[in-house]
């Protein structure tokens, strides 16, 4: 008998008393009662609590704010589906002054190597959805967020989030996402509680997380 058949057979024997599967009581909160403003406020509060840097700006101000955040950076990586307009404020791509930021685009045609990703200063991505209650940003690998590796190897992650993509509670985010997409849920920069159970930020993932919320 194969191991699979053996294990299956053991399970069926173990359940010979035919236990009844109970009804699942789903009377926990599944929709938030907060309005847009409260959700934004709570998300900002939670993100700051977990040591992310948070900036709330009008959508039109995104290029200016992004350029400001990237002052001093010489290279960034972006997924191929990131809206071009967001990068329009960067000091003259291809220009010749000292403030130039080299933008590398990761795409299905040209996948950056680990070494290339390790050499850039930051990654800029969008996000699929964010949960206010837990301060969680969710990436699902769509073209504006890119492959999982690009938001992992660079030491700084700048994430642009549309305010309309903020939900109150986790069940609302689950309802929006496709389970089979490769997902990364991010709640603050990389951290550990392994030393005396005190949380300290900055281990293997990006040590700086900047969240730019566009209203």
């Amino acid at each position: 008998m194969s191991a699979r058949d053996d294990v299956m057979s053991r399970i069926k024997s173990a359940l010979r008393d035919s236990p009844i599967a109970p009804e699942i009581p789903r009377n926990y909160s599944r929709t938030s009662t907060m309005n847009d403003e409260q959700r934004l406020e709570q998300l900002v509060d939670r993100l700051i609590d977990y040591k992310a840097n948070v900036f709330v700006v009008a959508a039109g101000q995104a290029p200016v704010k992004l350029a400001e955040l990237l002052a001093g950076s010489s290279s960034i990586v972006v997924p191929h589906g990131l809206p071009d307009s967001w990068l329009s404020g960067l000091p003259s791509i291809g220009g010749n002054d000292a403030g130039t930021v080299a933008v590398q685009v990761d795409s299905p045609e040209r996948r950056l190597t680990v070494e290339e990703l390790d050499a850039v200063d930051a990654v800029v991505t969008a996000a699929a959805v964010a949960v206010a209650e837990t301060g969680t940003i969710m990436l699902d690998g769509s073209p504006s967020q890119g492959r999982r590796i690009i938001s992992l190897v660079p030491d700084r992650h700048i994430c642009l989030l549309q305010a309309r993509d903020i939900v109150g509670l986790l069940p609302e985010a689950i309802a929006r996402l496709d389970a089979t997409a490769p997902q990364t849920w991010i709640s603050g920069p990389s951290a550990t509680s392994d030393i005396e159970l005190e949380r300290v930020e900055g281990v293997h993932g990006p040590r700086t997380l900047d969240v730019l919320i566009l209203t």
Partner: peptide
């Protein structure tokens, strides 16, 4: 477990994603 609202990272994958991981 850690007394956090959410842990810093959660990864989800379903079989193989071509080109990713």
């Amino acid at each position: 477990s850690t007394g956090e609202r959410m842990n810093p990272y959660t990864s989800l994958w379903t079989g193989v994603t071509p080109g990713d991981g």
